[in-house]
Design a protein around this nucleic acid. Sequence first.
RNA 1: GGUCCUUUGGCCGAGUGGCUUAGGCAAAGCUCUGCAAAAGCUUCUACAGCGGUUCGAAUCCGCUAGGGACCUCCA
Length: 502
Amino acid sequence: MPLNIYNSNSRKKEVFESITPGHVGMYVCGPTVSGESHLGHARPYITFDIVYRYLTHKKYKVRYVRNITDAGHFEEEGREAEDKVAKKAQVEKMEPMELVQKYTNLFHWAMKQFNCIEPSIEPTATGHIVEQIGMIEDIISKGYAYEVNGSVYFDVKKYAATHDYGKLSGRIIDELLDSSNRDSTTRDLEGQQEKKDPADFALWKAAPPEHIMRWRSPWGEGFPGWHIECSAMATKYLGAQFDIHGGGMDLLFPHHESEIAQSTICNHAAPVKYWMHNNMITINGRKMGKSYNNVIKLTELFSGSHDLLSQAFHPMTVRFFILQSHYRSTLDFSNDSLMSSEKAFKRLWEAYEVLKKLSFEENESPKDIELDTKINSWLNEFEEFMDDDFGSPRVIANMFELAPIINSLKDGLIANDAISSKTLAYLKERFTTFLENIFGLKSVDESNNELLAPVMQLLLDIRKEAKSKKDFATSDKIRNQLVEMGIVIKDEKDGNTSWGVE
RNA sequence: GGUCCUUUGGCCGAGUGGCUUAGGCAAAGCUCUGCAAAAGCUUCUACAGCGGUUCGAAUCCGCUAGGGACCUCCA
């Protein structure tokens, strides 16, 4: 079965065929490093990490470009038009670039915690001013942009006359252009009057004197518009047309719509073959926002230092939590649901650890053909589900179907010869491939301490001796005190004892 | 106000015109066990409401109600 991807542009699932056979160009809108990353940021980067990993699994050579927006142009609730980098820098008495560096580092740290693979190229907006100016000049020369007072605007009305502006985001162009149609939510922003039409968007903005971030341009000192950044970098590294462009649904309009317009004029072709958008994370049913006081930063999530959290959550728990829902569904976050994911992940991972250690004699013919068939069928569905627009929740559901079987094989509740050794090998391979390589999950257990392991072995030996002499006072003392230290031990059916750090 | 999306059992969450209304968490019972934990088995059963299409709909259409996202343009 070929890979099917839901294309936001056509609003349906399409068979994925890369423009250049064997290669995939993928661009994902990266973070704006004017502040700390929060839970909402985790979703797109984990989602597209899975896409990246899965395409790689499908033997594609992927060039994954994810930008860093480090120049001042941001969207923000309150819709106050201000350069957050510049403003915050003044408040904090920092250089803008110092601030940018700090939050870039924090972002990279968080990505590492999540076990996200680094993109192939991570370009910065400030590093591509030249390309952006070049692109703007091109758009002006083609007659789709105009300069006013040192700012340059894209002429949406002219573009819309011959192109399908609004298709991606489902806007109706006449309504966008009909200014009388606007209600009170339309912002009365500075610079609005100088535009030919309210629907026009800025490609370049003249910088007022107090603006710290500024670059020279043919139109005077200023800074680039938000949308041109992605168009310029995507074109530079992936070409005029590339396969996948990803990002959050909130970027559909105006950001991605504008990207299409800009690139279409410059390159004479729609830039992207497959548009992918992840849905948003809500918190207790509400969108994240400062006014709700429910923005949870990643550092707070990992440390548990937030009013909405009862405990710290491991990055792998968060990753698993995100994978348990489909990327195009809204995902409601709550302390309870994360706690439930934490337990679920632990259970699944322990079954996986058990699986890795399972081994038995070669046998060609399974005694329980029905079970053997069922297992193979569940395993085959892993790839089938992922091929259907990255159905990670269904893959995980199948893994949970298999977990009791794995545990039963270990405990002898299911005889080893019930399934063939070929099936067991397949089981192991599929789990490793999907759990580790594709889902990017890894153990949360930090007990691989070279010093601790032999000490634990000693304690467990002593406890075993005590138990054999029915000296339960001693054996319970060891167990109970270890629990207090955060180490849990379990007496297994086979007489051995396992342990782990909670 | 406009556009679009969404509504599944105590909670979280898949899914599809009829095979079985996934799976996880929680809860209850049982098995195993020195006890505990873990594990295994079992139970609880939902598809917002009202119409319609259909042999048949939670899945398609319409209406109603709740929820959500976006509605921009440079700071």
